[in-house]
Amino acid sequence: MAYSMEADMEHDHHIDTSKPMEYSTEDGSLKIFGFWVFLGSDLVLFSCLFTMYILLFRNTAGSFTSQQLFDYPTFLSETFLLLTSSFTCGLATYSMRRGMKNATIAWLIVTVLLGLGFIGFEVSEFTKYVSMGATMHTSAFLSAFFTLVGTHGCHVSLGILWLTSIIIQVAMRGLNPVTTRKIFIAGLYWHFLDVAWIFIFTVVYFMGKVL
């Protein structure tokens, strides 16, 4: 039977130094591609939540409207925190590719702090609405609002936990094919949350102010 040794090497656990470290093992490149596929799935998940919001946001049941609730300083601060965190997360990946362990850790910590700031603003925003009496029970509009923005917030919170775990691992174990792959994938996740937020501030907040 025709067999080849190189073929077997390909499925082996060896390291290909011509690629960036996170791609250098078969396991690494499989997981990165797998995560892209997951992001495609998550994108469709968000699109359903957006659909609900777009269909329901006029259905305020005679209660609070988007015009009355949203205020510019809050959601603009949230936006800039998240945009900046996406930038710093990109810098972490950039430093990682240059093999700079401490810079990578530093940028990841900045990213987590910015993420925490974002969550802080969002929690205070939600608490304010609830204290005004604008809760999920109030109207279909608010059900859709809290669910869409809350789902994004849950994603960010999970991302913070995830990045924290990665920071600990990089500090303990340095930059190796496993940790770099983790940084790269968590980076993809974090940037993706920014993509989702871009549509949230456009469709929820800006459109809520226009219509």
Partner: peptide, 26 residues
């Protein structure tokens, strides 16, 4: 994993200054 291996990895994939990221952010 060998951390001195890190420098070899993909340095040529990366420009010396993160222009792409800064332009993207701006």
């Amino acid at each position: 994993m060998a951390s001195n291996d890190t420098t070899k990895h993909g340095q040529h994939h990366q420009e010396a200054f993160p222009w792409k990221h800064i332009i993207g952010f701006l």
